[in-house]
Design a protein around this nucleic acid. Structure first.
Length: 828
RNA sequence: GCCGGUGUGGCGGAAUUGGCAGACGCACAGGACUUAAAAUCCUGAGGUCUUUAUCGACCGUACCGGUUCGACCCCGGUCACCGGCACCA
């Protein structure tokens, strides 16, 4: 063993060893308990960033730990390698997207290897590889055949900069999530996946995921946005049509004094045709079309709208109420029309004030400060029903159910459920993605490509102009084809799939990555699924994590997998921050200029130090503040461990020394040793608090330094403790530990070494320090034998000299004793 | 506006079931080693007051209040910051 810790040589050596020996290769070994440990795979942007390092270091600790505990651990890596940046590189630099992507993948594979991550590289997948997207297309066709995929013309979100449509989930604050350009609306015929059919299951199954952070579950619940209410028909005067509305406040029906339709409502033109209102209505509709989402949904904007010249009849009281159109009513939610109850809804209130419409209260408040007949804002809280005929006097919450029952009975309404969740728009007008395997035939309509013809390969004879239509349209050989059903000339779909589809099932392909007959073998998938631990950034809380859940359910319903949830436990890691020039911690980003490149840290300190620091600086789910001094500290610690081991091996000539626990020093070290094993084991497996696991290893190391030259200490025990340090530390810093292990033990490597167990008896000290409190305040500490009962403890304490002194002149009213911890005397 | 989260030394953080607040590390200070420096090893440290020092006293987990023998932890209220959603009927 070298005296000096030479990380660079050591890390190269062990990375090569693991690779040559395929140390992390796994198969479906049914004699062992399996553990599927998965980190979200990266987009091959070119270089790893610290967020990746953090993500994969966390995953690697878990994988290595579980392996040492004897689990059959599936730990894999791949690349989510379709997407726009590759295409932008093509436009900007004239590099083919495929080349750009594969170059990046190879670069990043190298970086991942240099981190010493324990992946079974034989299972690597890349979503841009035809071997992968063939099965993506196959899955799409299964969805299509089941009615889960359909094409429909709709106003869609359009990013003028990316020149493509976006899913609702990809619109953030009215802007494109990728480039921040304000999103506009466009009417386009697009492919959708019927995720709304799974809304209830996506929602209900969340209750069966105790291993998910509550925060993520809440976000998904809100996104699905289930609300229970009623659909009510309002007859339109002088028409055979009825206007259907959705409301969660059926109790306020008597207070509906007008109605509002969305400007996009399909009945609208019919209702105004030929009347004097046709022109102003059309003008308003045009005006609204030109607003983008940010403008339209701004809550601070004053309400706008126009009367359409028609009236509806309130079914409960026969009152004729005017119909307006306004852009605050959205065609994409509910029925696209509402009954307006200005007294009890703020938006309706604002609208009524602006247009001078009636405000009729139907719920009164118990609060004397609120006069519902004289409202300055809508009253939305609980109260008692008024002005509502037979419902008067009821609590309004109870009245909701009663009103719905009544409507149902009268045949004018019924209970319904509405969701905010929309079907998933998956068409993208871009090149670098999975081609949608559909063909349009003038006679047969849309027909899926035959399975034997898959994959539909991306064409290479395309031009990247960055303007106008998708580059694929420039490939004649791609577009022109024959109809798989009738054989006539037909046209191939030129849109590609949203890349979120690729990442919705990759965890399944990992279980059987080289299968060229099937997307995966069901037995293999069933052996490994579901993912026992999934780790990634919280930014995927809605998009990826909900799409993947939807896929798993749909695949389950197709009989392709047995489970219906993909990820049993989820760990969302926090961001990596660093101080900017003003000392304020911000997420590492190029624009702030506070990035630290992993490559630079690997060069200077090595992978083990990088991993150790990142795991030690904060618990995984919290933000991590980068500190150069902290990295130094982690490096110092590894050197400290190295010296400890070096000193030991250079003064002992190999061979196992029998461990004995005799002296007080032995007892103490044995106690620290066993409590450390217990703490590290619990911290990794139960709490994922790697920072505290590491700090307790540090404490053990400090203890060993203290004990180093003690003559009374049993050398066998000391050896055992030194070895244990190396074993416990190995999931965090594998290279240095393997190297030290060679000289310390020499039998095999640590990858499959058994995880140490602790001796319960050693966790109990002979003597414990017990705190003496007076009225809850600490006054003294006394050593007593451990394991005393409450009474014995109290008894013994009362006889202690110092305690007696404390109690002098006071009356003990009550004594509370907690064995091995404290005694509290309540005194007067 | 609604929903969720967080608030502890100079800093990152610890306290796992209501039982010694500040583990571990960073930064800092002192000492040992050295011609010297670096590295290393050892020691110290929440604040205020008192004392030559010891001993000690008081305050202290955002703020106000409550429950309890005892509260960073439980309950009620307030403030600040962070995240998500947002004209969703």
């Amino acid at each position: 063993m070298e005296e000096k810790y030479n990380f660079s040589e050591i890390e190269k050596k062990w990375q090569k060893y693991w690779e040559d020996n395929k140390s992390f290769k796994v198969t479906e070994d049914r004699s062992k308990k399996k553990f599927y440990d998965l980190e979200m795979f990266p987009y091959p942007s070119g270089k790893l960033h610290m967020g990746h390092v953090r993500n994969y270091s966390i995953g690697d600790v878990i994988a290595r730990f579980k392996t040492m505990q004897g689990y059959n651990v599936l730990h894999v890596m791949g690349f989510d390698s379709f997407g726009l940046p590759a295409e932008n590189a093509a436009i900007k630099h004239g590099i083919a997207p495929a080349k750009w992507t594969w170059d990046n993948i190879h670069e990043m594979e190298g970086e991942l290897r240099r981190l010493g991550l324990s992946y079974d590289w034989d299972r690597e997948v890349q979503t841009c590889s035809p071997d992968y997207y063939k099965w993506m297309q196959w899955i799409f066709i299964q969805f299509y055949n089941k009615g889960l995929a359909y094409k429909k013309e709709n106003p869609v979100n359009w990013c003028p900069s990316c020149q493509t449509v976006l899913a609702n989930e990809q619109v953030v604050d009215g802007c494109c999530e990728r480039c921040d350009t304000p999103v506009t609306k466009k009417n386009l015929s697009q492919w959708y996946l019927r995720i709304t059919e799974y809304a209830d299951r996506l929602l209900d199954n969340l209750d069966d995921l105790p291993g998910w952070p509550n925060k993520v579950k809440v976000m998904q619940r809100n996104w699905i946005g289930r609300s229970v209410g009623a659909e009510i028909d309002f007859k339109i005067k002088d028409s055979d049509k009825a206007l259907k509305v959705f409301t969660t406040r059926a109790d306020t029906l008597f207070g509906a004094t007008f109605m509002v339709m969305s400007p996009e409502h399909p009945y609208l033109m019919e209702l105004v045709k030929g009347s004097e209102y046709e022109k102003p209505v059309n003008e308003y509709v045009e005006e609204v079309k030109h607003l983008n989402d940010i403008e339209r949904t701004s809550t601070t904007r004053e309400k706008t709208g126009v009367f359409i010249g028609r009236y509806a009849v309130n079914p409960v009281n026969g009152k004729e109420i005017p119909i307006y159109i306004s852009d605050y009513v959205l065609m994409t939610y509910g029925t696209g029309a509402i009954m307006a109850v200005p007294a009890h809804d703020q938006r309706d209130f604002d609208f009524a004030k602006k247009f001078g419409l009636d405000i009729v209260p139907v719920v009164s408040s118990a609060d004397p400060e609120i006069d519902v007949n004289n409202l300055t804002e809508a009253f939305a809280a609980e109260g008692t029903m008024i002005n509502s005929g037979q419902f008067d006097g009821m609590n309004n919450r109870d009245a909701i159910e009663k009103m719905i029952d009544w409507l149902d009975h009268e045949g004018i309404g019924k209970k319904t459920v509405n969701y905010k969740l929309r079907d998933w728009l998956i068409s993208r007008q871009r090149y670098w993605g999975t081609p949608i395997p559909m063909i349009y035939c003038d006679d047969c309509g849309w027909v899926p490509e035959k399975e034997e013809n898959l994959p539909v390969l991306l064409p290479e004879d395309v031009e990247f102009t960055g303007k106008g239509e998708s580059p694929i349209t420039t490939s004649k050989s791609f577009v022109e084809c024959t109809c798989p059903r009738c054989g006539k000339k037909a046209r191939r779909e030129v849109d590609t799939m949203d890349t979120f589809l690729d990442s919705s099932w990759y965890y399944l392909r990992y279980t059987d990555p080289h299968n060229d007959k099937k997307a995966w073998d069901k037995d293999k998938a069933d052996y490994w699924m579901n993912v026992d631990q999934y780790i990634g950034g919280v930014e995927h809380a809605i998009l990826h994590l909900m799409y993947a859940r939807f896929f798993m359910m749909a695949l389950h319903d197709l009989g392709l997998v047995s489970e219906e949830e993909p990820f049993r436990n989820l760990l969302t890691q926090g961001m990596v921050n660093k101080a900017d020039e003003n000392g304020v911690f911000k997420k590492m980003s190029k624009s702030v200029g506070n990035v630290v490149s992993p490559e630079e840290i690997l060069q200077k300190y090595g992978a083990d130090t990088a991993r150790l620091f990142i795991l030690f600086a904060a618990p995984p789910d919290r933000e991590l503040d980068w500190s150069d001094e902290g990295v130094d500290g982690s490096y110092r610690f590894l050197n400290r461990v190295w010296r400890l081991v070096y000193d030991f091996v250079s003064t002992h000539d190999g061979g196992e020394i029998p461990a004995e626990v005799k002296s007080d020093l032995d007892k103490n070290l044995n106690y620290v040793l066993n409590t450390t094993i217990k703490k590290v084991t619990d911290d990794i497996s139960k709490r994922y608090n790697f920072n505290t696991a590491i700090s307790s290893i540090m404490e053990l190391v400090n203890e060993l330094y203290k004990d180093k030259d003690q003559k009374d200490l049993n050398q066998g025990l000391y050896q055992k403790a030194v070895k244990t340090v190396v074993i416990l530390l190995s999931p965090f810093t594998p290279h240095i530990c393997e190297e030290m292990w060679q000289d310390l033990d020499g039998n095999g490597t640590l990858v499959h070494h058994e995880w140490p167990s602790y001796d319960e008896d050693a966790l109990v000290k002979d003597e414990v320090e017990v705190v003496v409190q007076l009225n809850g305040k600490v006054k003294a500490k006394v050593n007593v034998a451990s394991g005393l009962s409450k009474d014995e403890l109290a008894e013994q304490m009362q006889q202690d000299e110092r305690v007696q002194k404390l109690l002098e002149g006071k009356t003990v009213v009550k004594t509370i004793a907690v064995p091995d911890r404290l005694v509290n005397f309540v005194v007067r």
